[in-house]
Amino acid sequence: MPRPPASPPPPSYRSAAAKAALYAGLVASAAVALLPLGWMLWAAFTEPDAPGLTLAHFADLFARFPVGRWLANSLFVSAAQTVLVVLTSTLGGFALATYAFPGRRLVVGLMLGTLFLPSQVLLPGLYAVVLRLGWADTFAAVVVPGSVSAFGTFLFMQAMAKVPAELVQAARVDGCSELRVWWEVALPVVRPMVGAYTLLAFVGSWNSYLWPAAVLLDESNYTLAVGLASMVGLPGYEGRSGVLMAATLVAIAPPAGLFLWLQRDFVAGLAAGAVKG
């Protein structure tokens, strides 16, 4: 495994005992992280007290609950929200990082001032706005409010501040439109951040519960998180670990797939953010 260039030489684990302790600690920690997921797989594919693997829990799950529908709903809502929030955040961040214009300080101030506000304080007001628009029980009520992010816009404003001004100027001299400067000059510079933020936005949207549960009323409109939460308390499902774990597996597969695809960008993007502090 190649060592990162700035890797420090902290405590040397030279003795064999120290080395064994190091790996024991790492393996135990990884095991604790993975064990619940392993148990999920095992419980989803086995029958208690019966040998061999089974797909019965999945058959049961899809027969009794509109899980296919919930999965499609979640995929649509989260994909739409993620694409929109990445677009609006990179465009807005580019504008704030690259141009000096009247009102810029006001926008940045508003974003910073609301960065740490808990989203729950919006619930009653947002509920009123959505009712007034006639959006109760629609996907628009979930997708539209989540299609912009002060955090994301701020993130890309900071990342794109590093795009060299000469590069932007050279592209303009070459006849690039401003939109092409964003696409061909700024976005490539922050590519790992785009990957990291895409994953973050998708996972956040995929797992969000409170707002979707408040506005999606009909069972067939539920997202997976809302549907899954509604299953836990059903009488008779207390002991039906297999069905619950099959549902959890269905729910975790899409973000896990995206994570495996984007994980290199993700770690690099987080690291870039962390070093800045």
């Binding site: 619940p36 996972v203 299953m231 896990a256």
Partner: peptide, 19 residues
């Protein structure tokens, strides 16, 4: 391996720990 659990989110973690 250590980063994987963050994908689960609060609802899935609640279901997972229930079981």
């Amino acid at each position: 391996a250590m980063l994987l659990p963050f994908l689960a989110g609060n609802v899935l973690a609640g279901v997972l720990f229930t079981v």
